[in-house]
Design a protein around this nucleic acid. Structure first.
Lengths: 146, 146
DNA sequence: GACGAAATAAAGCCAAAGCTACATTTTTGA
DNA sequence: TCAAAAATGTAGCTTTGGCTTTATTTCGTC
């Protein structure tokens, strides 16, 4: 076993950076998911109700309420007591970006031979870790094979 | 068997399933990351010390200690006070699987035109959501272009 | 062998995201 | 109309994964 340690070797800081970026992505993943879902519901029904959000996200309604509270805190959504939830302009922009990225990830997976159903399932978690650079590469790949 | 009452529409339960699967993947992601890292350190240095684990994961040592405690609880690692951490047979198997999957994901990303550095960063978060079915598809895709 | 530095442990704080249980408001329909 | 049902709000518990601070143990070096 080689080598004594310094304060921080290159291997250490590189790995640490990777994990820190993954953690950062994870911390916004839920905001993205809820924003997208609320956007969907606003389109389908004109407004997003807590009960519908909860059902679609597969959580109980207090959990959905907490998530919406965080969205409101971040300026992505607005709501009044006992009324539906609506996205702000920022929230809508986020929802659109997320939806577009989701679609690209699913398309890439299916293009690589993943069954559509599996592609949907896996994309749900993967998409949050797809950086802009990777997204561009995905889009270029899809364009090239059309 | 009597028909159980349907409280969810198809759209609701499908979406909920997707999110629940993504959440399940996330709950094992940290176990996978730590197991892989401990495996790496065991190979490099013969044992994994808490300080080294913490440095590479980009966390403080109490955080690493907690993660190791969870690994031990799950039967993936063993350790004695003030001594290094070692993976069990199960832990080693997990680490190997994770390492192999990580490599495949990075290779697929680079094959799609993602710069190597970015591929490493994005793979770190994405890999935990790559199901066996998708992994097989990735491997087939890579084989096909060799 | 002893001492100081480094490593590890232990305790406790915080936020997030899930839950249950219960209270309140709104909606519905007889 | 008004009582029951549904929706929403609120409180509080649990786990997880971060953190800091403070003790304790081990280790390297003299």
């Amino acid at each position: 076993m080689p080598q004594t340690e310094q304060t921080c070797t290159a291997a250490e800081s590189e790995a640490a950076d990777r994990f820190n970026q993954a953690r950062a992505a994870q911390s916004v993943a839920i905001l993205e998911d809820y924003a997208e879902m609320i956007g969907d519901l606003m389109e389908e029904m004109g407004e997003a109700r807590i009960t519908d959000i909860a059902k679609r996200m597969g959580v109980t309604h207090p959990t959905a309420t907490k998530a919406v509270a965080r969205l409101k805190r971040e300026g992505l959504a607005v709501s009044r007591p006992y009324r539906g939830v609506f996205l702000t302009e920022d929230g809508l922009a986020l929802a659109d970006r997320v939806r577009a990225r989701h679609r690209v990830v699913v398309e890439v997976l299916t293009a690589l031979g993943v069954p559509p159903e599996t592609a949907e399932l896996d994309a749900e978690g993967m998409e949050h870790h797809v950086s802009d650079v990777t997204l561009k590469a995905f889009e270029a790949f899809l364009d090239a094979r059309r």
